[in-house]
Amino acid sequence: MDDVNIENWKTEIRRGLIEMCILALLRRREMYGYEISKTLRQMTNGALYVEEGTLYPLLRRLENKGYIKGDWRIREGKARKYYELRPKGLIILKAMTDFWFKVSDAVYKVLGEVDNE
């Protein structure tokens, strides 16, 4: 696999995970876009860092799908668009995490067997 293909592969994997992680973050509390970006970067040591140019359109898509809801609120004297998880998003998050744990277990198993050979 050359450099270009590995990058594509990483992007594909990351794309799905970022969606799941954003929903998981919003399950804890409501956040605004830049806050989501910073939290993701800090919590994952940059492994799941998402450029803001990708994050904001992604938030819009999640909002359009009805998974999250964005509202303009003034906090600490600043107007920002805060996102919160909606019931539909919670259902999706549950389905995503279930699948993720199942798959990651399986992948670990496979990788472990490969390493042992």
Partner: peptide, 17 residues
Amino acid sequence: DIADDVVEELRTHIIDE
């Protein structure tokens, strides 16, 4: 239909960062 909202959100982001 989304221009105002998107632009406003990007503006707050640019100022914040």
